[in-house]
Design a protein around this nucleic acid. Structure first.
Lengths: 341, 341
DNA sequence: CTGAAAGCGCTTACAG
DNA sequence: CTGAAAGCGCTTACAG
């Protein structure tokens, strides 16, 4: 059946069915009943199509209909619980609604992000969702100029509606949880250290505010040096903590599972004192509950975020507001002890 | 600049530049020097395009050129170190070579896989790479009938060339590592248990063969009941081990990080005896080195696999052979002890 | 009940 | 140096 030469078109089918290309077209795209084409012809065409392995040339079809059906998404990473899940759910939802999802992973590189956006615009995407984009406004401005709708997810922008996690509240809750556990289990109350992320990043700064608010509420002062927003990498987190050899109790607010990796590495490398360390992490990883000292993690509500984002697709005249989605806090039971020796 | 109505076309540009659409087209697609269009006109057109925020309608352009530039990939999950990395590298490589990568996540669902393949064929993808597909041959047969090239990655098929990891050898090495460590650290020699995966799955069965070969080489018999290929889920792995309360030393070959989660959960839940457990995992996770009892992990060589796969793209008359890519084995240093009480 | 015709936005031989 | 024309494979008012 392999037809290397030319693929079957509606013209081929028309010839075989002894009908016009128009009739074939409408049979194939399901409008034949409306056009009152005889069931007999319709069936003949459909079985011929099957037989010839015909598949519509979507490129041509959509060009003619001046649509693309493409829903674009830009995402920093796949290899990440949070963004991986976002991409997966986005695809499933888009597909369920009849769109053709095209997701592109841009590695947090602003230029790659913009290139990907341009490409998606060239394909005349119906809408572009920028997830965790480093420069969402640049993308929105470009989309806007080309008449393509854009929506921000995870990280907000000012030129398009944004659906983001309620970082402030979740960070405050997580801070409270860690402080409570330090008090209960170690008889010690803060201040905690804040490790990971970048202060210039909206989410990190919102989380830091929540972190500080909870300390303030409890009357605990946080020294400036306790804020270690050293970026997104396990190495940097480990380096930031390298000089920290706690003699007594200590607590850490870990910003993102990427930083968590560094914190755990530091923790398991401590000569002693590790048993009196408690930490919690903003973001979720299945190995989290198994890490000694980890008292809880925040899980962002991906489904809720996407549901809200999809509600905005196709809507015009939207305000560029921020929609805040609450997160879930997962406290873990009794802390596991650290490795011996 | 927002043009909600109609997007700028080459005809608009032609009018503004007082030139023909043909000239504009060739300026815009870079063939103007070949067509010996005056630099003056070219520059006029280009600045007008810039000014009008023109972006070529790729749909129309590619339809005319009877190409799609699309390179399709089907992948089971994004939210997974291994497949997430494959998707990321695939995209970067495809883009670097001038393709438009479209990757689709199909959740190990055979029907979804097939639907996605059909969709990609409708878009006239130049080539479709099926990664970890449950039924690669069904996809290859369909692609073949439509004149679309297909390549299998990770899981082999018989109707298209396959690039896969050398599961057998890596499993044998990992088995050897675990057995060595058990002997050295616990003074005990096997047999190990094999946990996770499905025997019907090519990779699991190749790994099991390597596992058994290493035991055979050392003259260690493996009881049938030690093979617990219970599928791909943390729960199932944990359930399979639920009745296993080792009194003395024991060792486990963990098939996939998904199962690892279950094994670690089981391990950390043991009332006692956990200190004399050693395991290793086929597949890589950054938290791996931090898990007590974990002596090493296998990392599949994603870059090498993709490099080989890309070499096949566009090649015709390929045999449907299997290309085996060696894996890397990462031994971890001294085992960490388990949690206390 | 069905077909001829125009057109989606491009590209590219062909003819000056 | 440049334009008119045909055509990629479809869809859809329009006219019977």
């Amino acid at each position: 059946m392999s037809k290397d030469a030319k693929r079957t078109t509606i013209y081929d089918l028309a010839k075989l069915a002894e009908a016009s290309p128009s009739a074939v077209s409408s049979v194939l795209n399901g409008t034949w009943e409306k056009r009152r084409i005889s069931r007999k012809l319709a069936e003949r065409v459909m079985s011929l199509a099957e037989e010839q392995g015909y598949s519509v040339n979507v490129q041509a079809s959509l060009l003619r209909r001046e649509r693309s059906n493409i829903l674009g998404m830009i995402v920093p990473k796949y290899d990440n619980r949070y963004f991986g899940k976002i991409a997966e759910e986005f695809e499933a939802t888009a597909r369920a609604r009849g769109f053709f999802p095209v997701v592109t992973c841009t590695q947090r590189d602003p230029d790659l992000e913009f290139e990907a956006a341009k490409e998606l615009v060239s394909y005349r995407a119906e809408c572009l969702i920028s997830t965790g984009a480093t420069d969402p406004d640049r993308i929105s401005a470009f989309c806007d100029a080309s008449g393509v709708q854009s929506i921000n997810l995870d990280l907000p922008g000012t030129l398009a509606p944004s659906v983001i996690s309620d970082n402030y509240s979740a960070a405050q809750e997580l801070t409270g949880l860690i402080l409570d556990r330090c008090e209960k289990e170690l008889g010690w109350s803060g201040p905690l250290r804040f490790v990971g992320g970048r202060l210039a990043d909206h989410n990190t700064s919102a989380r830091l505010e929540g972190f500080l608010a909870e300390h303030r509420k409890r009357g605990i002062a946080v020294p400036q040096s306790y804020i270690m927003a050293t970026g997104y990498s396990a190495e940097k987190a480990a380096i930031a903590l390298a000089d920290f050899h706690p003699e007594g109790p200590a607590g850490i607010f870990v910003n993102s599972t990427i930083s968590l990796e560094g914190v755990v590495r530091w923790h398991s490398g401590l000569a002693r004192g590790g048993d009196e360390i408690r930490y919690g992490c903003f973001d979720w990883d299945p190995f989290g509950p198994l890490l000694p000292g980890n008292v809880g993690m925040v899980e962002q509500d991906v489904s809720a975020m996407l549901t809200r984002a999809f509600e905005l697709i196709g809507k015009t005249d939207l305000s560029h507001e921020q929609v805040l989605i609450p997160c879930k806090l997962w406290p873990f039971q009794a802390p596991l002890a650290r490795r011996e020796g």
